[in-house]
Design a protein around this nucleic acid. Structure first.
Length: 461
RNA sequence: GGCGGCGUAGCUAAGUGGUAAGGCAGCGGUCUGCAAAAUCGCUAUUCAUCGGUUCGAAUCCGGUCGCCGCCUCCA
């Protein structure tokens, strides 16, 4: 397996630290509002990557942080006039619901920043002891001048940092404008924690990820993921903090997901193209359609989100689901066909080689749709074992892409059973007018009737 | 100013030196009582553009145009 590593700026062959095991840290939500589809692109891409590792047989230990203390959560709490905890509880709950809706595999741990203040303070102590941090006006800062490798991830030199167009003017009390805060001294209207050495205050943003990743994954782990916007400064600062504190390499592979745009424009509230997951569900789209759209384009490319795209995703999913429906309706003889087994093996190998190559999902989906086409040509030749093998294959693919809903087996009620029976009678008597009327009636109730040589089949639409 | 990405059909999207995958949409057939599904045919002589290297370029090199991201708390 190989994939693009932001740290080295090239596609690297993957080697895990502990054979068969992967430590994965992904940047989670700041819980001050409902997550939007741009956020979810990142989470879904992370899910795809994780699911592929699982499919490849790795044991993945996945940690996703929840930022429940920062400027935005504090602002929201003041706006709403309720405590920080009450605000974040609302959005943590919403986030976890959305994760479930989108069929995202849950992380092993969702550590919250506010529950790891001690770990952060310990880390700050280490940085102070080793001389990488200094205190000033009740706050603690990291001195990037002490870390020569600073800027390696984002490929930014220190000179360029200083000429950058925006410098945070609020924090001019730092030694160097480019230093960043580890511990913020207490301010009016802000929640605070007491620390023995640095007084009352709250943690800076970056420190939580360094502290929590090391707690749950160790000082040195395999993969760290997030959106491209996090490369700088967030991930750069994490590296600085962690490596200076431990003296070890922090993360081996950094994977960053490109943003999405909506109708080719940056998503923003003022343009009216800002959507949360809930907004889109309210418009009648299915979560799997959203997931398919967000997954179907390469993670390092800008994705253009549009409602037309969702309709296209709907049709693509329909092709897969119709295929499964057809397979389930066949009446095959016992046995297995060599040609089918061969096709299955080739398709799966090809699917893997595409995914192995920097998660080339478009190529991999192409293989899958080609496979569906090939099997559709041979439906009549399929034997019982072939169908089982095909369905197993589809399940393995779906364990990676996660777009097929497990439909619960719903039974038809007696009244509808009776209608279907009536229609069959009518068809026998060539009374197609009545037959079609019954079919239309059931269709309006969401039940689709399909006539086959072996009798009538039905499904929910 | 610095760093980086992108430009392939109506939409979407692979392919990164050997002669343009796949999905959606469209048109016309087959199958079907009609549908549905499936299937067949048509739909990019061409990959933003100009030049170069090569037997051969969407792929490599150089220029140009256009779009976008980051440069201190935005996934």
């Amino acid at each position: 397996m190989k994939f693009y590593n932001t740290l080295t700026n090239k596609v690297d062959e993957f080697h895990e630290i502990d054979k068969g095991k992967i430590g994965l840290y992904t940047c989670g939500p700041t819980v001050y509002d409902y997550a939007h589809i741009g956020n979810f692109r990142s989470y879904i891409v992370e899910d795809l990557v994780k699911r592929y590792f699982l499919y490849r047989g790795y044991n993945v230990n996945h940690v996703m942080n929840i930022t429940d203390i920062d400027d935005k959560t504090i602002r929201k709490s003041n706006q709403m006039g309720v405590s920080l905890n009450e605000v974040t509880a609302i959005y943590i709950k919403a986030f976890l619901e959305d994760v479930e809706t989108l069929n995202i595999v849950k992380a092993d741990v969702y550590p919250r920043a506010t529950e790891h203040i001690n770990e952060m303070l310990t880390l700050i102590d280490k940085l102070m002891e080793k001389g990488f941090a200094y205190t000033k006006d009740n706050s603690v800062y990291f001195s990037i001048a002490k870390f020569p490798e600073y800027g390696k991830l984002a490929n930014i030199s220190r000179e360029n940092l200083k000429t950058g167009v925006s410098v945070d003017s609020d924090e001019y009390e730092k030694d160097d404008v480019t230093d960043f805060v580890l511990w913020k001294g207490k301010k009016e209207e802000e929640p605070f924690w007491s620390s023995e050495k640095y007084g009352e205050g709250r943690p800076g943003w970056h420190i939580e990820c360094s502290a929590m990743s090391s707690k749950y994954l160790g000082d040195h782990f395999d993969i760290h993921m997030g959106g491209v916007d996090n490369i700088f400064p967030h991930h750069e600062n994490e590296i600085a903090q962690s490596q200076c504190a431990t003296g070890e390499q922090f993360v081996n592979y950094w994977i960053h997901c490109q943003h999405l745009v909506v109708d080719n424009q940056k998503m923003s509230k003022s343009l009216g193209n800002f959507y949360t997951l809930r907004d889109i569900l309210d418009k009648g789209f299915d979560p799997m359609e959203i997931r398919y759209l967000l997954i179907s384009s390469h993670y390092r490319k800008m994705l253009n989100f549009s409602f037309d795209g969702l309709l296209q995703a709907r049709q693509a999913l329909k092709r897969i689901n119709d295929f499964i429906f057809t397979l389930n309706g066949l009446n095959p003889a016992e046995g297995e066909t060599v040609a089918i087994t061969t096709l299955l093996n080739e398709s799966e190998a090809h699917f893997q080689s595409d995914m192995d190559d920097d998660f080339n999902i478009s190529g991999a989906l192409g293989v899958f749709f080609d496979f569906i086409y090939q099997i559709n040509l041979k439906l009549q030749e399929l034997k019982k074992q072939d169908i089982k093998n095909i369905l197993d294959f589809i399940n393995r693919i779906d364990s990676v892409i996660g777009v097929l809903k497990q439909k619960e087996e719903k039974m038809l009620d007696a009244e509808i059973e009776e209608k279907i029976k009536q229609r069959q009678e009518a068809r026998k008597e060539k009374n197609f007018k009545l037959a079609d009327a019954i079919r239309d009636e059931l269709k309006s109730k969401g039940i689709l009737l399909i006539d086959t040589p072996d009798g009538v089949r039905w499904k929910y639409e």
